[in-house]
Design a protein around this nucleic acid. Structure first.
Lengths: 336, 336
DNA sequence: ACTTGGCACTCGGCCGCGTTGAGTGCCAAG
DNA sequence: CTTGGCACTCAACGCGGCCGAGTGCCAAGT
């Protein structure tokens, strides 16, 4: 059905259209890409490509542009990995190298990615539920308000104020802190809540049930809420693609809606393969965009995902390699 | 020079232009605002208003639109405070009421403000240097890496990893933690670094100089870096004003540049008066916008600022009262 | 069976043109 | 100082014609 030359034609259309953002005609193709055939032949091929749904005509007597399906085929079978330039590699290293802590790593990564790809970059914070507890700290605010601070091995620090139904003296506080740490340190957070059920009795056993239930709730909401953190950069780059999105508004709205972003990133957390979602494969609001994402983490574990959002008319090979390179580098940083 | 009627005319022009976003002509004015004079008279007034630079004509044979100077006069002398509707008051209370901690307060405020004003909202985190230390926690990560966690009375929790030149045993760590807390708790952060110079000697006095200098540096960078946190929401609202900004890009870029935002907000931290910057009064990139901002904090102290960024063609009275109301409410929340 | 040149056809983009109408500035009279 | 009248300007709009890129189809060639 689709012989090699037809695929070459499709590739030529995608590449040229990405470059010029104008519908590409048969004549242009034979001029730029030496296929060794005449425009008429290319036209015939384009007709079948159109029948199969890989390309489309904005209107009669215009050239062709790729459809989502066409981009999909291009990404899956026709694109070559485009290695990063040494300058880009150096930029990644020098830019991310100076990060002092987790916030810094995330913020730098997202800015870097936006700059490299000239698109909107999104970086998810390392998942809490897949992290382990390094330390739990309790700070007394008032007689019956405590601040719980949770520190994980990935460097995240989460906090939550909790209201106690009863006053707590300092001794009980120390005890509670101690037993919390003994019970939780080293555990994965997603099992932390469960582990609390067998908290040892302290000097005031009458507190036990209320404390465990309280802590369980707190931990759960903490994990759930904190799971949902993402950093975003490069929104201004959207405007450069004004031609591609007739209306930017829904895109901006979708990007501000963290839930949407998390769903987007959450599904792609294999650190070994870049995932590309094209056009309609995306959730509402991002139907006119493509999303390139990948998981990251130390080694081949995945703690979270990062990626970029751009027009379907996108330099897929370049974007994919930039995303992968940044993910690897960030993963390595977190490993140490 | 400018009698009352001319001011009325200016007010009419500003109000109508804000509502319709179309140049307003003499006839429209006498129709909508019963000034009791004829179009010809209004025309004469408009001519002098134009001479004085308060209004301008996009082109001959079009109506007039306010200039930045016109808006300025309107804001300073012609606008009435527009009280919030009960529905809006209720919205603020119910939306902000459920906040569980500082992050939550800031995030909710910024979203609320964006929704109320239908513009881009910006909320600065409470200043660290004006907060006092509630608790300092040290967590040992490896033999010579520590995590410093700083908790303030405004509920902020800041963290920083520090590399020690020497290994530290657990006893010294406890001692250090104790003396840090004794020295710092209750102090303002901007004097915290200084206070460290007379840290009492511990069991290993040879550590003292290196520890103090280390802590000083850490505290300083911590304060400096953390000072610069802002939350932003409603970027999508920019697109609704596409008519007002021929190009959104520089605006989006300026909004992503935290430094610009902080400068913007940093200068307006009197919690008693709303500050309005119009058009050219703003820094590069925001010259086509107006910024309405105010300080907030418990009582009449100012911990930080919040505000909105929108087109110069903006409902100033409404925006100003929304900004002030949210600031008051947030200030009250932080007081408790 | 595929390729190719030729050819008629389509249709969006552009230019020039006249029309319309909102809005102004000016002036002379009230 | 205000007002009605009046000539003038100019953006917006619609219309028609032209141009050219690009196509689809077909008949001839390999």
């Amino acid at each position: 059905m689709l012989d090699d030359r037809k695929l070459d034609v499709l590739r030529a259309i995608v590449e040229d259209f990405v470059r010029t953002s104008e519908p590409v005609g048969s004549k242009h193709i034979v001029e730029r890409h030496h296929l060794g055939v005449s425009p008429a032949t290319v036209r015939n091929d384009m007709a079948t490509l159109e029948d199969e749904g890989y390309i489309a005509q904005p209107h009669t007597s215009a050239g062709r542009i790729p459809t989502d399906k066409g981009y999909r085929l291009f990404v899956d079978r026709l694109s070559q990995v485009k290695p990063l330039s040494p300058a880009e590699r150096r930029a990644i290293e020098s830019f991310l190298g100076g990060a002092v802590d987790l916030d810094d790593v995330v913020n730098r990564s997202v800015k870097l990615l936006a700059q490299l790809t000239r698109q909107v970059a999104v970086v998810q914070y390392p998942s809490l539920s897949r992290s382990t507890v390094r330390h739990v700290e309790l700070v007394q605010l008032t007689a019956n308000r405590l601040l719980l601070v949770l520190i994980t091995d990935t460097g995240r620090v989460e906090q939550r104020v909790l209201e106690l139904p009863v006053a707590l003296d300092e001794g009980s506080l120390d005890e509670l802190r101690g037993s919390l740490n003994r019970t939780l340190v080293g555990r994965h957070l997603d099992e932390a809540a469960k582990a609390l059920t067998n908290l040892p009795d302290g000097s005031r056993p009458e507190l036990r049930p209320v404390m465990t239930s309280l802590m369980t709730v707190v931990l759960e909401t903490l994990v759930e809420r904190a799971e949902q953190r993402v950093a975003l950069a490069g929104a201004a780059n959207l405007t450069a693609h004004a031609l591609d999105f007739p209306v930017i508004r829904p895109v901006l709205e979708a990007l501000e809606e963290q839930v949407v972003l998390l769903k987007l990133l959450g599904e792609a957390n294999d650190p070994t393969t870049v995932r590309v979602r094209i056009g309609d494969e995306n959730p509402e609001g991002l139907r006119s965009t493509s999303v390139v994402s990948i998981g990251y983490g130390p080694g081949s574990d995945s703690l979270a995902s990062l990626g970029v959002v751009g027009p379907t008319r996108m330099d897929y090979p370049g974007t994919m390699s930039a995303v992968r390179a940044v993910a690897r580098y960030v993963g390595d940083l977190l490993g140490s």
